[in-house]
């Protein structure tokens, strides 16, 4: 089953709407609590990144009995150095975002820790694509 969400940029107040809706869907499907927690944390982090750095974008989700797959695509500035970005505490977030409590540089770490597969591809000046996968078979 596929779903699509559009994420607005610059909207710090309501950030996380798509993740929150998706979470509701997963609960209705009766997916295990631990899996919901992991995919929600990863997707939420990725959604925040899209809002903070890329002025929004789109999210496509796919749920099968085997896995949950989430693709976040933006047309933002892209990530200059992916290895550096993956480091804990490294952040290029704006002052405004930091003042709102975002941009602590832990986002990618959190994502990686909570999902089974994380793929990030980015082209400078064109955008970033984040793919998150969580497998369902470990739990009910």
């Amino acid at each position: 089953m596929k779903m699509h969400y559009d994420v607005e940029g610059g909207e710090f107040i309501n950030v996380g709407t798509a993740s929150s809706q998706f979470k509701k869907t997963l609960k209705m499907l009766g997916i295990g609590a631990d899996i919901i927690r992991r995919i929600s944390i990863s997707m939420y982090e990725a959604e925040i990144n899209m809002v903070i750095h890329a002025n929004g974008g789109s999210i496509d989700t796919e749920i099968t009995p085997e896995r949950i797959h989430v693709v976040l695509q933006d047309q933002g500035p892209g990530i200059e150095n992916l290895d550096l970005a993956m480091k804990a505490g490294y952040s290029t977030a704006s002052r405004q975002a930091r003042e709102m409590g975002f941009g602590a540089g832990m986002g990618l770490q959190n994502m990686k820790r909570n999902c089974d597969e994380l793929q990030i591809s980015s082209v400078l000046g064109e955008g970033t694509r984040v793919e998150i996968t969580v497998y369902l078979n470990q739990e009910s």
Binding site: K27, M28, L29, G30, I31, I63, T64, P65
Partner: peptide, 10 residues
């Protein structure tokens, strides 16, 4: 939950 069976729920 929509259904006990995840296939049906989907």
């Amino acid at each position: 939950k929509l259904d006990e069976d995840m296939f049906k729920a989907l």
